[in-house]
Design a protein around this nucleic acid. Structure first.
Lengths: 117, 117
DNA sequence: TCTCATAGTTACCAAAAAGTTAGAAATGTT
DNA sequence: AACATTTCTAACTTTTTGGTAACTATGAGA
């Protein structure tokens, strides 16, 4: 998310990648979408993404919120409670992401196995 | 494309991201798909992706080929001629990617404009 | 008073990704 | 002989990403 150049602004594809094409964003969106209530707390997400560090989860959630893809609701309690959920925009993105994930599951072997052989 | 860990192997979503979720891969796939003949040469691709350096285009094409998403055909001529096209696996991926790109075009403002305001 | 729990942030460091520049081949043209 | 063409590769540098560990705040309970 460095400086924004003209060519960058002009290319929606690049925009897409840069907003949720990083290491953890899709996994967060996917996890939120799979949740029954549609709402998850910080540590709850952490338990579903065990190899994502606290720092990265925090940064990922912040970016997704700033990109309008998730909602963040803070309850003024102690200890703090913060609930995350997909925004309407985020929900509208899920069919595309799900399509991608299904493809990944189906073509896993075509794409990956060859490399290890 | 770093080292491969157990959790990494176990997660097809992460696999997807790592194979074509980088800075340029989707743009290459999209560009090849848009081409009328379905075949493009190296410099032809370059002209469609002006802000991608030669080195990165080369590396991206190599990765896509190793991931079985594109075909690379070399003609033994001078100067060299190399033609790239989508593989069958690559073609099967395009609906998902197109879906993502269409979403990006439609929701560009929701996701991006807020940040500059 | 001490500790726990939650949801983070910050500083520091290492690794990875990506950009720049140069050049390697091989051969046809000037 | 010099140069252009095309598709790369290598060396070097900068930028970005991601990990670890320590720190914050607050109130409840022991």
């Amino acid at each position: 998310m460095a400086d924004i150049q003209a060519s960058y602004l002009a290319c929606p594809i690049r925009q897409v990648i840069s907003r949720f094409g990083d290491k953890w964003s899709m996994l967060v969106l996917y996890t939120l979408n799979e949740s029954e209530t549609g709402v998850m707390r910080f540590n709850e997400l952490r338990h579903h993404m065990t190899d994502c560090s606290q720092k990265m989860l925090s940064a990922t959630l912040k970016n997704l919120e700033q990109s309008n893809l998730i909602n963040r609701k803070v309850y003024p309690e102690v200890p703090p409670r913060v609930e995350y959920s997909l925004s309407d925009t985020g929900k509208s993105l899920m069919p595309s992401i799900t399509s991608l994930i299904n493809w990944a599951n189906e073509h896993f072997d075509d794409v990956v196995t060859k490399q290890l052989a």
